[in-house]
Simulated scan of single mutants.
Amino acid sequence: MTKKLNLAILLSLASTYVVLAQESPSPTPTPTPPSPTSSPARSVRISFVPPPLEGTISLGIYDNNSKLVRVLHQEAEPNEFTIGADALVTQWDGKNDDGEDLPAGKYHARGYLIGHSKVQDLGQAAAPPVEDDATANVKVKLTPNPLANDERPIVDLGVGFDEEGSFLKTIDGLPLCTISETPNLIRTSIKKNGEKSVDVWQDDGTRIVRFRISNIDKMMAFDCGDLELK
């Protein structure tokens, strides 16, 4: 009798468990949040015929206000570009120098082929040049590019510096060639030394050093035309 009673109790408990299991709603799975959609890749093809001069290439991207928004290539060798059927080819990802996406619209690409200039370290200078003689930029006549059928263009050159050293640049900021790898510079100045060379002074706060850059006229300008960024 006791065994039958125990069996009845077990069957009753089992039935109750099944009923509760059927009535208890199954847990609702937590929805997986959608993964953020990355912005589509933007790529603008740029092609140009390099000027007939041996040297390195600096190429910049400019907005409609002729402001330099991206240094695409700096002192690049021609073999760093893709060689097309009749031109050198490169790509622009639509970003500025800070890695930020630029708005869609029209842009312009242009640059310089810089011949083999000569940089001489003239040693420590006793004092910086007087303000009337040394300025922020100088005007230099370049070698004409026969592919552009232009006369000798005139470009304004200055000196820039960052944590890696100093460099010759255009007045709008496009770096052309390295002057030195001296870090922690605080000021620079430039002065023409004839038609084909300039003198540069740079100060790191402890001493002033003078450099002479020769053959600066051995540069040719080139234009890649307008670009459409979508």
Score class of each variant (00 low, 15 high):
P34Y: 13
S35M: 13
S35I: 09
P36S: 07
S38D: 06
S38E: 09
P40Y: 06
R42S: 07
R42V: 11
S43E: 13
I46L: 01
S47L: 00
S47M: 00
S47I: 00
S47Y: 00
F48A: 00
V49D: 06
V49R: 05
V49E: 06
P51R: 04
P51G: 07
P52Y: 06
E54F: 13
E54C: 11
E54V: 13
G55M: 05
G55H: 02
T56V: 09
I57C: 01
S58Y: 02
S58A: 03
L59N: 01
G60L: 00
Y62D: 03
D63N: 15
D63T: 05
D63Q: 08
N64T: 11
K67S: 09
L68E: 02
L68C: 03
V71T: 06
V71W: 03
L72S: 01
L72F: 01
Q74A: 06
E75C: 04
A76C: 06
A76K: 04
N79R: 14
N79Y: 15
T82K: 13
T82E: 15
G84C: 10
A85T: 15
A85L: 13
D86S: 13
D86Q: 13
A87Q: 09
L88V: 05
L88Y: 01
T90V: 11
T90C: 11
Q91C: 05
W92V: 11
D93R: 02
D93P: 03
G94Y: 00
G94H: 02
G94F: 02
G94N: 01
K95L: 05
K95I: 01
N96H: 02
N96A: 01
N96R: 04
G99M: 03
E100G: 06
D101K: 12
L102A: 07
L102Y: 08
L102F: 10
P103G: 07
P103E: 06
A104V: 11
A104I: 08
G105N: 08
G105M: 07
Y107P: 00
H108C: 09
H108G: 08
R110T: 14
Y112N: 05
L113K: 10
I114F: 04
I114N: 00
G115L: 03
H116L: 11
H116Q: 14
S117T: 10
K118F: 07
K118Q: 13
K118A: 11
K118D: 12
K118C: 08
V119A: 08
V119S: 08
V119F: 07
Q120F: 10
Q120M: 12
Q120K: 12
D121P: 07
L122N: 09
L122Q: 08
L122P: 04
L122I: 10
A125W: 05
A127I: 13
P128D: 11
P128Q: 12
P128N: 12
P128M: 15
P128Y: 10
P128L: 14
P129C: 09
P129S: 11
V130I: 15
E131A: 15
E131Y: 13
D132M: 13
D133H: 10
A134C: 07
